[in-house]
Design a binder for these strands. Structure first.
Lengths: 301, 301
DNA sequence: TGATTCCTATAAGCTGTGCTTATGGCACTA
DNA sequence: TAGTGCCATAAGCACAGCTTATAGGAATCA
């Protein structure tokens, strides 16, 4: 009922080559195969498209008309193939990557360097700053191809609800204590979380806050949270002025470490999981896979 | 190794419809058939083109790239189909028709009228004046689609050499005597060609001349040809002034008949065959066939 | 004038593409 | 918890669409 696109291309090859036999050679087929296709095409169209001459083949008016469109079809298919080839080899294309701020300041630049070394030359990576919740929302809304998020094992976060996303663990980011240098416990050996039970605390995002509360409760106290901010620079500023103590992930500290705060570990501290998240199947998109492998190759923590 | 154009169109249908199942419905197929095609397409491309969601399907970047070209391919195929449809029904297109001058003045206009009545509305017929030899050369050179020629059974003309053209007889055009009205034989009953054995003659083209000579010899004399011209108006002018006698085909006389000449028949006169000639296979081109049928429906002679 | 080589069409057969039906899993909705 | 979308997979079967083989016409050349 409609034009068989393969036959249109065969027709194109025949007219271009000048004869059915030459067309068949160009296509790597035998002459009868092409003869049959052309006959079928002409039958479906209801008129002859080429006139058979002893020396080859001459398009009829209808053949000329079809030929014009066949040229367009052939070149579009060719262009599509080339374009897909570039995408396949990551010589082109864009990957939109959402990540939380401290990752954007640390592991993402590292990953981008690895990406360039791995031959991600023509690949554009568009970076979007977003906290995990927003990153996953963007992923869901198809505004982003890849999200780097974090989560705490002891806190039920948005990213723990299985949304059908695929996720790849990138590593564990240790969480460390941040104290003013003048603090009596700042240089005490064998420091435990419980030693800070009566301090004022700075807490971050809701989940970070929950995480802090969870660790403290397991250490036997309820932390008094007197300040709240997501910003790890602000946290260190508050701490450095002796207003409170806090915890910060190592990644945040490697993004910015004030000289006026002391960082200490404690056995009761648990880290946060850092993950790359993407829509199911997106991991097999070459550009996404390439960025993903660069992320995985980046040392975390 | 390259994109299967059918699968590109299937892909187009799927993305347009929003899901594999919907695409299958649009194509009148079952869902597994389309699933398999898409899978094969993605395998040949080497990357996923769509992401499967519970609610349907979302194109990947590569899918978007392919989609742009697929749109173009689909619309070109559609346009080609429509254009061919118009050509098939002779609502468009051009037929180039070569004919000898007196035919152009008589039977061709009649045929064009019939053509219009038969619904050849959108069809353009381009008329080219050409004597049979030139008409066949044009046909050979693909400058013309159809040629109306004439030939004499007793003269070996170019058109009698089988060039592989197909030819349709349109009728026999009687050849008649042309005499000055003042001629002693102009009104004689039971006129025979031999009665004009000692006259001066006007002859036309080489073949017409041979034809005249042939008829005369069979009637027992060698005609004295003192004037030569192809132009049937000139012939009549010469005859009307009493300078000579001549023969002219009836078609020429119906194109122009001087009141100053007398037209007579004679049993020894033989007519000329009028034919339509075209390249082999061209008779199955709808527009050519339509013009041809109009020509055949035109009464000759 | 035959020999050769191009062209195309047709016949007959076999292979593998590409449908089908059947089934199962998963996500969302009521 | 059933119901209704979605998709993937398996298995089977038919026919599309190749192949080889053959024949005939037209052009070229010795």
């Amino acid at each position: 009922m409609a034009l068989d696109p393969r036959r249109v291309l065969i027709f194109h090859a025949v007219v271009t080559a000048g004869s059915i036999s030459a067309g068949a050679r160009a296509l790597g087929w035998t002459q009868p195969a092409v003869t049959q296709h052309i006959a079928a095409l002409e039958k479906s169209v209801g008129m002859p498209l080429i006139l058979r001459r002893p020396t080859g083949v001459v398009p009829t008016p209808a053949g000329h008309a079809l030929m014009a469109h066949a040229e367009a079809v052939a070149s579009h298919l060719d262009a599509a193939w080339q374009e897909l080839d570039e995408l396949r080899h990551c010589r082109a294309g864009t990957v939109r990557l959402a990540a939380f701020p401290s990752a954007l300041a640390t592991i993402i630049p590292h990953a981008m360097k690895i990406l360039n070394d791995q031959g991600g030359g023509g690949l554009h990576v568009r970076l979007i700053e977003a906290e995990p919740d927003d990153a996953l929302a963007s992923l869901r809304a198809d505004e982003v191809d890849l999200a780097v998020t974090f989560g705490y094992s002891d806190v039920e976060g948005v990213d723990d609800i299985d949304e059908g996303f695929e996720r790849v663990p990138l590593g564990v980011d240790p969480v460390l204590l941040v104290l003013p240098p003048t603090h009596p416990l700042a240089h005490q050996e064998d420091l435990h979380l419980g030693d800070l039970a009566d301090q004022e605390w700075v807490a971050g995002c809701p989940r970070c806050r929950e995480h802090l509360v969870g660790m403290a409760r397991r250490a036997g106290f309820e932390p008094r949270i007197s300040h709240e901010t997501d910003d790890y620079v602000v946290v260190q500023s508050i701490v450095s002025q002796g207003l409170a103590v806090s915890v910060l992930p190592k990644i945040a500290l490697s993004a910015y470490h004030s000289r006026s705060v002391v960082v200490r570990d404690a056995p009761e501290l648990t880290g946060r999981r850092v993950e790359a998240v993407y829509r199911p199947g997106a991991g097999r998109i070459p550009s996404v896979a390439l960025v993903l492998s660069a992320l995985r190759a980046t040392h975390i923590g």
